[in-house]
Write a protein that binds this DNA or RNA. Sequence first.
DNA 1: AGTCTATTGAT
DNA 2: TCAATAGAC
Length: 462
Amino acid sequence: MMSPQPVLYWFRRDLRLADNPGLAAAIATGRKVIAVFILDEETGGRWAAGAASKWWLHHSLSALAADLQTRGATLVLRRGRIATELPRLLAETDACEVHVGEAIEPWARRAIDTLAQTIPLRRHRTSLMFSPEEIRTGAGTPYSVFTPFSKECRKCYTPHPPAEAPRQIPAGKAPPSDTLKDWALLPSHPDWAAGLRATHTPGEAGAQARLAKFLPRIGVYGEARNRPDQPGTSMLSPHLAWGEISPGAIWHATLAHAGRDVEVFQSEVLWREFSAHLLWNSPTLPDAPLKPQYSAFPWRQDSAGLTAWQQGRTGIPIVDAGMRQLWQTGWMHNRVRMITASFLIKHLLIRWQDGEAWFWNCLVDAELAANAASWQWVAGSGADAAPFFRIFNPVLQGGKFDPAGDYVRKYVPELADVPVKHIHTPWESAVKPRNYPTPIVDLAFGRARALDALKIITRSTA
DNA sequence: AGTCTATTGAT
DNA sequence: TCAATAGAC
């Protein structure tokens, strides 16, 4: 006698059990559930997971597999194109349908749309609070300005507590699985992994712990979040990127607090939603400027400058500190992300896509939508972007947000002996730092050059 | 969610 | 000299 057909739950960027409506829907079918994850490093091309993301993914999958195990289920790992692996899994398990979280990445959307033509595929919103098609202007068009978008989101939001993790999962017979070790996701350089491990705890439990640690400080978020020398941010981004916690669960947790600072934090969650909204409606966002006139921008070819920026050897302390924090920990403080991005794009006149690609490889929290939208925001070429002429002066930014130089000294030990007065301008200090470069570009010259470059595209569109 | 410069009025 | 302010980029 044939046993009833199971369903597949296909985990993607929703590696959690709690508040996961996709997994819940799979269980609610009343059938046996088989949990699968497919590592597809081919379909996305250059937007396959970067090195830091792969480190995170290894540990997150390891945590998810353990959590599933305690509920009686096994996580089945497969590697290959989703277009071939998913049908293969379906055939092997005789599953009657597949449940999966909605994808935002254009390559994944296309592949899943195609699969849905031949496979019974049920999509669920597991990684966003709002469906990218749900939030529309009065005219029915997508939003291109953040503030009205966020107001509409707040209007549409109805408070609901996050769903608890299922206590038991009626597991179907698991087909053969790869092992995580087979996938070799961990970096070959052990020092790098050590730096990442010292900073982060991937997995659903780590996400909850991070949230619990942040909430008591949410009341001072508005100011503290700008200080890279202080632990003012939530550091939830990598957990959100892999869906170890749902944005709705984070939002709901903030409701126990009140005040302007809470709204500021909530707005950051909504910026992530806005990025997804932009990518959904403009699939070329990661590759091409949203404002077409920026295609004519006179970028410089400067591989030495790009390398100096990547390695944190530009001679500008706060830029170098940020780039080294990124390399050492897989994460960079948001204020410093804006400063380093502005420096690359404006003072060095290097294409934002080069910065985007480096961040993609180095950030444990890399999300295609947020990364692309944020780089275009700094470049001035995106939706509701900062104007190009808003050029951060890294010396002033350093003095304002790292006044004692604690952040700079932590990541640029060459500056240990430079007095605080000159910690952001060591080239003016009587105490010369050892083995630290002089600025690769004069800041006033770089600023003027950037404004000149801007004239080329503003003239042509006037 | 900026910076620079000029200007003004207070030390 | 310097903080506050406005306008331009």
